[in-house]
Amino acid sequence: MRYFEDIEIGETEEFGEYRVTEDEIVDFAEQYDPQPFHTDAGAAEESAFGELVASGWHTASMCMRMLVDDYLEERAAMGARGVDELRWKRPVTPGDTLRVRTEVIDKRVSESDPRRGYVDSRLEGYNQDDEVVVSWISLGMLERRNPDG
């Protein structure tokens, strides 16, 4: 387990592999973002995208899943304070394979609770062509191993 004290500013990691399917794009969009370019391949051809694309919220969710499975499970994570600068950079389409890269950009001990530290990280989701499809700054919280020291 990695605690706040184990994390260094500038540290980077790459992980995950998530294959995006048309069925998943449509299922997610029908429930959460039912716009025609997410739910109907024919209608999507007439849209600005020219093809079916994943909702940006779906793209962020797929990257979040990889973050939980391949990154946070090894850390003493205590949740997050939010995200900043969420950007959808490129459309995600059926057949894309996503992966994630993180970089720690800041860390500090909580002033209100010395048992936790704040770790801010830049997350970028990439497709199989090494193009950034989504990015955000995660405002994470990690348990401190030794809050008294």
Rank of each mutant, 00 (worst) to 15 (best):
G10Y: 01
E73F: 13
M66Y: 02
Y3I: 04
E22Y: 00
R75Y: 03
G50Y: 08
L139P: 01
R108Q: 10
T39E: 06
A77E: 08
S138Y: 15
G117Y: 01
A41V: 09
Y71L: 02
A43P: 02
S112P: 13
R145C: 14
W88M: 09
G149A: 02
A41W: 07
V83C: 09
F37S: 08
P114L: 11
I137Q: 10
S61M: 12
V133I: 11
D84S: 04
L67S: 09
Y126N: 10
H58F: 10
D113H: 05
V109N: 12
R101E: 14
V53I: 01
S61L: 09
M66H: 03
E46G: 07
F4K: 00
P114K: 15
S61D: 05
D130G: 11
A76N: 07
Y3D: 00
M1T: 06
A60C: 09
V133M: 02
G117V: 02
P94Q: 06
Q35D: 04
R101I: 11
P91Q: 04
A60I: 06
R65F: 03
H58R: 06
R90Y: 13
E51Q: 10
Y3H: 08
E111H: 11
S135V: 09
R108F: 04
A48T: 15
G79A: 01
T97L: 06
T12P: 13
L123V: 15
G149I: 02
N127Q: 11
E103Q: 11
Y118D: 12
S110G: 04
R116W: 06
D84F: 01
V132G: 14
V104G: 04
V83D: 05
S110H: 07
N146Q: 11
R122T: 14
A29N: 05
R19L: 15
V83E: 11
R144G: 02
Y71N: 05
D106T: 05
P147I: 04
A29P: 03
R75M: 12
S110I: 05
Y126L: 10
E143D: 15
R116D: 09
S110C: 03
H38N: 01
V68K: 04
M66W: 04
G95V: 06
A44L: 00
E46W: 06
T12V: 08
Q35M: 06
R81W: 08
E14Q: 10
G125N: 05
P114G: 10
R2V: 11
S110D: 06
R99G: 07
R108E: 12
E13Q: 15
R65E: 13
I105V: 14
D40A: 03
R99A: 11
S138A: 13
V20P: 03
D106I: 11
M64A: 09
W57C: 02
E51T: 10
